[in-house]
Nucleic acid binder design. Structure first.
Length: 439
DNA sequence: TGAAATGTTGGGGCG
DNA sequence: ACGCCCCAACATTTC
């Protein structure tokens, strides 16, 4: 009797696709002939690993409010849950007659495990689980070498990716919001941050919007100079799906091949993580697992705080600490410094970035670190050691970026470099060389 | 998506 | 005028 009163509904489960427009999974749900209820789950399995001041939770919270406002225009609401994924679905199923659950693919190891588990749980109750490809143009094994194995070098992957897109005339293009119905519901409040044990962090992230033409036109010229506003700053929006990759690719095709390549790097590393999940815990190239790192806690602490005595390195780390963002060139320079100059395991740095970066993406962060440390696929060779002085000369010639983050760098009490460049360089090359010889 | 070491070349000062 | 040296500029090799 009770059951008969429950409303029939499809569920659309938002995860890292926090937008209504050009959302493939949402479109699939809306086209399936039954009203759709949108939900978001604050997953304690993830939240319990984060600090209560994590700004990413504030960002998600802020974006969910906007989603809720947008859903109000469709006479519906976003329902949010706090707890384990299964607990959330138990509650949903007790209140609605759920037909099917829709969402978009999430390729990270934890997400794959989570989705498999909940799909099985839903299946045992006769509820379908439909996941769409949404966050990348090409996923998993869609761009492979002729012999059927995955690419492990970027350039040939990038060429194959572009050639596939060329032949894929329309099916990758952005779509409009489908015309199906949402389940009519009054607005419900988003679960409060404080309720979940998080404090609201100040955020200065503009709403997502397509980069303008002038930026894309000068992107190749300006992107390596951290003092110039030469990059799109869209990484955080790509991470949480507040902007659609298809819209960005469309812009890139028209205005900047260099920027398109960066979007392809993102898919390259996602593909690498999918096919080589061992990279999460070890080097892509196993012989690099035996490097005798110095792993000095004290050195690591100075690096984290931006007190290495190398102004440009310190500037990068302080930008990260103060804003949750770091310019890409600085990510390379600070990573090279940690693994080569300080001989600290790149995984320490990877973990620090993972904690601090608002745009933290497991696949890109891991790929970037392994690239810098020389142990990744298509990595920088081990003897390629960035010279922080030269990098400053080349990419921050007026010290504008350095001054912005390390205003005291020319003062008398600014620390001496914590390690001499010439010494550290040859020590790194020798250490790597000896390790690789033994394998 | 390096940097340093080493090699080569050629102009200019000088005897 | 010529050979010699120095060294900057550029190229190549090596790490």
């Amino acid at each position: 009797m009770e059951d008969l009163q429950l409303q029939k509904t499809h569920i659309f489960w938002f995860r890292r696709d926090l937008r209504l427009d050009d959302n493939r999974g949402l479109a699939a749900a809306l086209e399936d002939g039954c009203p759709v209820l949108a939900i978001f789950i604050f997953d304690t399995q993830i939240l319990d690993t984060l600090s209560s001041t994590d700004a990413r939770v504030s960002f998600i919270h802020q974006r969910l409010k906007k989603l809720n406002e947008a859903l109000a225009n469709h006479e519906t609401t976003l329902l949010t849950f706090y707890g384990s994924v299964q607990q959330a679905f138990e509650r949903i199923c007790s209140k609605f007659d759920v037909q099917s659950v829709y969402c978009n693919h999430d390729y990270e190891p934890y997400a794959v495990m989570r989705d498999n588990k909940i799909m099985e749980w839903l299946g045992s109750r006769g509820i379908g689980f439909h996941s769409s490809q949404d966050q990348v143009i090409y996923e998993k094994s869609q761009v492979m070498k002729g012999d059927g194995t995955p690419y492990t070098v970027f350039t040939p992957y990038m060429k194959a990716w572009k050639s596939k897109l060329n032949q894929d005339t329309r099916n990758w293009e952005p779509t409009k919001l489908s015309t199906g119905n949402f389940l009519a519901m009054d607005q419900q409040a988003i679960t409060g941050l404080e309720t979940m044990g998080f404090s609201k962090q100040p955020l200065e992230i503009p709403d997502p919007q397509l980069p303008d033409k002038s930026l894309l036109n000068r992107y190749q010229k300006d992107r390596d100079y951290p003092a110039r506003n030469g990059t799109s700053r869209l990484s955080v929006h790509l991470r949480f799906g507040t902007i659609s990759i298809r819209k960005l690719v469309k812009e890139a095709l028209e205005h900047s091949d260099t920027w398109l390549n960066e979007l392809i790097w993102r898919e390259f590393y996602m593909m690498i993580l999918w096919h080589f999940p061992h990279v999460v815990n070890e080097c892509f190239k196993p012989e690099y697992n035996f490097i005798p790192w110095k792993n000095s806690e004290e050195d690591f602490d100075r690096w984290c705080k931006g007190q290495t005595g190398y102004p440009l390195v310190d500037a990068g780390m302080r930008e990260l600490n103060q804003t949750g963002y770091m310019h890409n060139r600085l990510r390379m320079i600070t990573a090279s410094f940690l693994s080569k100059h300080l001989l600290i395991n790149w995984q320490w740095g990877e973990a620090y970035f993972a904690e601090k970066l608002l745009d933290f993406e497991l696949s890109s962060n891991n790929g970037g670190w392994q690239w810098s440390a020389g142990c990744g696929c298509d990595a920088a060779p081990y003897f390629r050691v960035f010279n922080p002085w030269l990098q400053a000369e080349k990419f921050d010639p007026e010290s504008e970026y350095t001054r912005r983050w390390v205003p005291e760098y020319q003062d008398a009490d600014y620390p001496e470099p914590m390690v001499d460049h010439r010494f550290a360089r040859s020590r790194a090359i020798e250490t790597y060389q000896q390790t690789l010889q033994k394998q």
